[in-house]
Amino acid sequence: MPKKNYSDLQVSFGAHLQKIRLSKGLSLRALATRCDLDDSKISKIENGKLNVQLSTIVELAKGLDINPKDLLDFG
């Protein structure tokens, strides 16, 4: 199996985050409010332009009402 580089992982994680957010019917702004994060930061994460920290993953999971491991299960 070929190694993925970090930018590929960021893009995959971001796409997965967006899929979960949309499946819950949340806008960027609504998720940002739930997580106490800036909506532009979430947008950058979803677009693979920002490397996400573990603490941010935990906050996003809380806002999505899921377990953090579910955010990390993106393939």
Rank of each mutant, 00 (worst) to 15 (best):
P2I: 06
K3G: 12
K3W: 04
K4V: 15
N5S: 11
N5D: 13
S7A: 05
L9R: 01
Q10F: 00
Q10N: 10
V11F: 02
S12P: 04
A15D: 10
H16C: 05
L17N: 05
Q18W: 09
Q18T: 14
Q18M: 14
K19G: 08
K19M: 07
I20M: 02
I20P: 05
I20N: 02
I20V: 15
I20S: 09
I20F: 09
R21W: 00
R21S: 04
L22R: 04
S23D: 12
K24A: 00
K24I: 02
G25V: 00
L26I: 15
S27V: 02
L28S: 08
R29T: 10
R29V: 13
A30Y: 03
A30M: 01
L31R: 07
L31K: 05
A32Y: 03
T33S: 02
R34D: 00
C35G: 10
D38I: 15
S40M: 05
K41Q: 10
I42L: 15
S43H: 10
S43W: 05
K44G: 07
K44F: 13
I45K: 01
I45Q: 04
I45V: 15
N47T: 15
N47K: 14
N47L: 15
N47F: 09
G48W: 08
K49G: 00
L50P: 01
N51I: 03
V52Q: 08
S55E: 11
T56N: 07
I57D: 11
I57Q: 11
I57P: 01
V58K: 09
V58H: 12
L60M: 12
L60I: 15
A61Y: 07
G63V: 01
G63A: 10
G63T: 04
L64T: 11
L64S: 01
D65M: 04
D65C: 07
P68M: 11
P68V: 08
D70P: 00
D70K: 13
D70I: 06
L72F: 14
D73L: 09
D73N: 14
F74W: 13
F74I: 01
G75M: 13
